[in-house]
Design a binder for these strands. Structure first.
Lengths: 111, 111
DNA sequence: GTTATATAGAACCAATCAGTTATAAAAAGA
DNA sequence: TCTTTTTATAACTGATTGGTTCTATATAAC
């Protein structure tokens, strides 16, 4: 994941309304009106947030009749998680313990 | 980690200059002039970025003579990582495979 | 074709952001 | 005390953000 993508993803996550939208979409797809009902702001405001999330690749949208359903796309979170993960050694106080060292090197990491 | 902290941390990470500063500080502490030399912007601009990082808890600063040394504080990254981690099941395509299921449940997770 | 529903876009606004230059303040050294 | 070095702050600017209201567009239903 490159710097431009990290900019977009972290910026998208830096707003609690957008994080709330993602949390809701983790449960199921939803249209804009359903999402608007969860917050105290107008429908166009939510539409703007959805645009930010879409440009970061965090949601995709499909037409369903007159509605457009938003769907969580978590792949960019993997990239963000990997970036943060490079600092793991700096926060894991147990980093130098032998068992952790072995655990990190014996298994190759999975997602 | 609460919503306010997540706002501050993700916002701090949503800028490549600030991510660059963190990367540099992962190597060792540094003063503002050293950091300024790494980027094509003025010293006050870097000072502002440091302020954002400090308010997010991502760095701490100590006086050392006339200098103020910035030091990486990775703890907030742990909180951000945990938040993102709640979406791991949505990006890990192997999530439903038996070996992964076992691996996730047999070991309690460490940091 | 008309109407209703769902959604995005336009225009606007106040606040914040990210940079600049110039300057003030703090510590050290002569 | 005067000077130097390091750093933060002040004042400014242009761009962006996050919200608003109003309206246009697209699809479906009648």
């Amino acid at each position: 994941m490159n710097d431009d993508q990290l900019d977009l993803v972290f910026n998208a996550l830096a707003d609690r309304t957008r994080r709330g939208i993602l949390a809701r979409l983790a449960d199921s797809e939803a249209n804009v009106n359903e999402l608007t009902a969860l917050f105290t702001m107008s429908q166009p405001a939510i539409s703007k947030h959805l645009k930010v999330l879409e440009q970061a690749g965090l949601i995709s949208r499909t037409r369903q009749g007159t509605m457009r359903l938003s769907k969580l796309e978590a792949a960019p979170l993997k990239g963000a998680s990997r970036w943060i993960g490079t600092y793991q050694e700096y926060w894991a106080e147990s980093f130098n313990r032998l068992d952790d060292l072995l655990r990190r090197t014996e298994h190759e990491q999975h997602d």
